[in-house]
Design a protein around this nucleic acid. Sequence first.
RNA 1: GUCCUCGUAGCUCAGUUGGAUAGAGCACCAGAUUCCUAAUCUGGGGGUCGCAGGUUCGAAUCCUGCCGGGGACACCA
Length: 585
Amino acid sequence: MSIFSAIKSDIEVILKDMARRENWPEGLPIDRVTVEPPRDASHGDVATNAAMVLAKPIGAKPRAIAEALAQALEALEVVESADVAGPGFINLRLDPDVWRREVVEILRLGVDYGASAIGGGKPVNVEYVSANPTGPLHAAHARGAVFGDALAALLEKAGFAVTREYYINDAGAQVATLARSAHLRYREALGEDIGAIPEGHYPGAYLKDVGQALAAEFGDRYAKAPEEEWLELFRSRTVALMMDGVNADLIALGVDIAVFTSERALVDAGAVDRVLEALEARELVYTGTLEPPKGKILEDWEPRPQLLFKATQFGDDVDRPLKKSDGSWTYFSNDIAYHLDKYRRGFAEMIDVWGADHGGYVKRMKAAVSAVTDGAGALDVKLCQLVHLYDGGTPVRMSKRAGTFVTLRDVIERVGPDVVRFIMLTRRNDQTLEFDFQKVVEQSRDNPVFYVQYAHARAASVIRNAAEDPTGFDLSDAALSKASLACLTDPDELGLIKVLAGWPRLVEAAAEAHEPHRVAFYLGDVAAAFHGLWNKGKEDARLRFIAEGDPETTRARLALVRATATVIASGLAVIGVSPVEELRE
RNA sequence: GUCCUCGUAGCUCAGUUGGAUAGAGCACCAGAUUCCUAAUCUGGGGGUCGCAGGUUCGAAUCCUGCCGGGGACACCA
């Protein structure tokens, strides 16, 4: 139990007691009581708004309640002082031993420190990347891949049973085009001069390998055959090869997705027909004609009766088509089937990670999930904004047509997976992000990856130096946790511990908000507190971690150093970045 | 035209789901190195939280309307 939740339950006990004695009304909004660190550290260690939240229902003045509550809190052993401030806040200062004991807890739990049970083992499905299998992943996919993966890890840390999933869009016209493009490369591989790749095909050179593979497998059997004979075969072969490449790139980024679901397999299995039945059973389908969209000129628009889903009943702006004009299912229909499939596999909670350009699709998808699960399924959609690539301040221009796009593989090979992963989380997902190839590998304060990794490496370095001491400490965590932590008296030492003790709280808040970037920002705070303390030892030798001639203090400080490294490693594990022991040029 | 999203220090961005006097980094100014990695740190100045209303003990945060940037708007995926 974290320090804050422990205090909260203490407060609840006291409040119940007061309610009984003072004859407070039933049904007080206890759940609105917060116990958290105050924004301004000078206010103390812990603040609660209990008196302000309860004042109105009780019919008393906030400060009067606060005074009584503060008095009761002051009697607690862990509380050093309790003061009423402002409109009725109660600020608590805790016995420093409360904080020191947290160091022991960190060393005991190791990188598992911060794990929470709020998820209660509830299944959650996180679907991310899901790029079309028509080519290799490019740089822009990195953001969704890292975001989704970190979110999944964060939810695991918070006690959810997470499944990482990728939806393969292998059912539409694009993969047919892919198959035709592959057929061209197949003929090329057989020695035919195919000339320039015709308009409407994928020109990418990456399909040459596919052509070779197809030629090796089938010889010239389909070189001159009509399309009906090879299209399906080539489609499935090419998609499989593309997905092998996609998965290899994801693995190189440290993204290990457990479930790949094929859109086509769902369609072939009749999942979409069943969705239509489910919608019809709820009277949510009808045939109607949509108004032409305004503000966008469509030359080929013609009013047409279509099979529509009553999305407006669930908060969408217009009803949405389920079938195309040629009678086949829309992508949307297939996607409803996919989400219902996820729901039926046991995921009442689903998270989709999409590019921001799909923002216009969110309402209808949520509407559909709500409809087909009768409100029991919850879908959260996280939109990732664009990544702008730079190289030393110069924008990297990318054009698919000119074939100058930067692949994910390129980025990983140039800066390494750790850098990619960390940088992708240095902005909220809905903000655009700059990624400069040169800046992200700089070893300076400006570079958050370096700054955090250096803190971990520096901690490791201190331990290495201590190990060289001839007096020979036992530097295992188990031994260090028995150190006399009362030696940790400097405000900055206690300040660092307080930052470290915030890790469990942060995990829970970030997991509930589905915001993994908070982990990256938190790690920056930990690193800043640690670097600050380290540098204080530069100026004042008495504050150095390794205190000459004072083994007891040294051991206590080394315990703190190890605790710091442990929390950083724990946070980096959520992001999927390796904690380095050493940074040397 | 409709919907989504963002708007916070000169710049780049956080802001603990509604808390107190809104915070970091960069840049600027002034400092710290016989010393555990100075690849770092300390201090200082800098704000109409786009604007205007509303909700309440309390709003950067929630609601409404404007202004400005970005994105999306039958059948593509």
